[in-house]
Amino acid sequence: MKTYGTEPGAPTPVQVGISELVVSDGDDTLKSYGLGSCLAIALYDPNTNIGGLAHVMLPDGDTADNSDRKPGKYADTAIRALLRRMVEQGANYTAVEAKIAGGSDMFEFESFGDGVGQRNIAAAKTELEKLGVPLEAEDVGGEYGRTVEFTPGTGTLVVKTSDGDNGVTEL
């Protein structure tokens, strides 16, 4: 969801909706709600505090014809777009690290095949490896939803499940 206009000091975390990606260089918190089979991909450069969060929906953008317009929709194109925008803002490519969360398989429907969540996880890992970005931490799979909060300044990815206080993991 896009927010128009900014109020200085507004404490609201920046919401990263499905198929969106946001890059930030401050103490902003980037938040994605209710990830089921979608995957949250967080990249950050610990030296410059520049980082970003993508909320991807599908694995493969290279074969889709709208991935130029919506790079954040696909795991592969989202990772490349995040990296490019971070480098443009001054991040050092070789220092960038990654954390991922989400990719559950909520339902066992016949039409889902191997699982829509698994496909997203696999695609993200392949792309990160291809680009030489180390995957520092992950909280993926399972059969439950997650809400994530990422602070690029510290590289902390907080993952919450619907179990209240018991369901908070810090990556």
Partner: peptide, 11 residues
């Protein structure tokens, strides 16, 4: 399913 609403819809 007993979970965050959006998580049930995104798959």
């Amino acid at each position: 399913i007993h979970d965050i609403g959006a998580a049930a819809v995104d798959p």
